[in-house]
């Protein structure tokens, strides 16, 4: 059971990365390669705030949200907006992710840092398994975030405008939606969410400079399983990837964890290229 809890929490982390991908994807049909690195920076900022500076939790939270949001905003302005050829956005956001990897190594070093969780570090017993408070928190955060974002997009004008924009950018523009500002807003918002998530993800995975790459990939696999743009899909995808990774590592050996996830990704892409929760849209000329 301990294994299941661990897998679930891991899955929640990946699902959260995928949620962030989705926020940007829905708003501007772009894919931010550096999203996981933003969460990683959030985790590092949380470490600095909580351990080095010994600040209070709300203050650190504010700090993490603000700093990562600023990073995301800068990224949008410098590495996404000026790019003319949409193909190149993959290259520039990949550049940002490498840049953040390198910068965090310079600032925080290459050793894993243990980020304390503000909810306590005492092991709990649940249904015959052991679980850390942060793991419960991760699963809760993932579910609540997906629920809130889905509601936001249906109930509020901003959300509707975003959905409209993802459907047809020009039509949204003609309806008076400031597409550029909204895309920028969504980018910055995804940064803010990433900063907040750093507080939760850090305690589970440690803050380490190699965190970004593995989060980025697993988040992508989650997205591929759930379908691009589907918020509920991220929860299912996270569940699958997290459990598969935990089980493979336990029963097949550590080196099989990534390979198992890769096999799942390949299978999904071959069987249902659009993911489980998105209808295939027919192509138009």
């Amino acid at each position: 059971m301990t294994l299941i809890w661990g897998g679930l929490a891991l899955g929640a982390v990946y699902a959260l990365v995928a949620v962030c991908y989705n926020i940007v994807f829905i708003s501007s049909k772009t894919f931010n390669f550096a999203q996981a690195q933003l969460i990683m920076v959030g985790a590092f900022v949380a470490y600095t705030g909580l351990v080095t500076w010994k600040l209070s939790v709300p203050l650190v939270m504010l700090l993490a949200v603000a700093s990562v949001m600023a990073l995301a905003a800068i990224e949008e302005r410098l590495a996404v907006r000026p790019v003319k050829d949409p193909h190149n956005i993959l290259v520039t956001t990949l550049g940002v992710s490498i840049l953040l990897n390198g910068a965090t190594q310079l600032v925080w070093g290459t050793q894993p840092l243990n980020v304390p969780f503000f909810g306590g570090n005492d092991v709990l017993e649940l249904f015959g398994g052991q679980i850390y408070p942060v793991e419960i928190a991760l699963v809760l955060v993932a579910v609540v975030l997906v629920w809130a974002l889905t509601r936001l997009s249906r109930r509020f004008l901003v959300g509707l405008a975003l959905l409209g924009m993802s459907e047809d950018r020009e039509a949204a523009m003609l309806r008076g939606v400031n597409v550029r500002r909204l895309a920028f807003g969504a980018f910055a918002f995804s940064g803010a969410v990433a900063g907040l998530l750093g507080m939760f993800v850090g305690p589970k995975t440690f803050a380490v400079a190699t965190l970004g790459a593995s989060l980025a990939l697993k988040g992508f696999v989650v997205l591929a399983i759930g379908g691009f743009g589907s918020m509920p899909g991220t929860l299912v995808g996270g569940l699958v990837v997290g459990l598969a990774e935990a089980l493979a590592a336990r029963y097949l050996g550590g080196e099989y964890a990534n390979i198992t996830v890769f096999v799942i990704l390949i299978t999904i892409l071959l069987v249902r290229p659009a993911g489980l929760f998105v209808r295939v849209r027919e192509r138009t000329v």
Partner: peptide, 20 residues
């Protein structure tokens, strides 16, 4: 070496934006 990642990152961003 230490700065290689930073350099590569900056380079990809600048290259992607300007050096089509």
């Amino acid at each position: 070496q230490q700065y290689a990642l930073v350099f590569t990152g900056v380079f990809l961003v600048v290259g992607g934006v300007l050096l089509t």
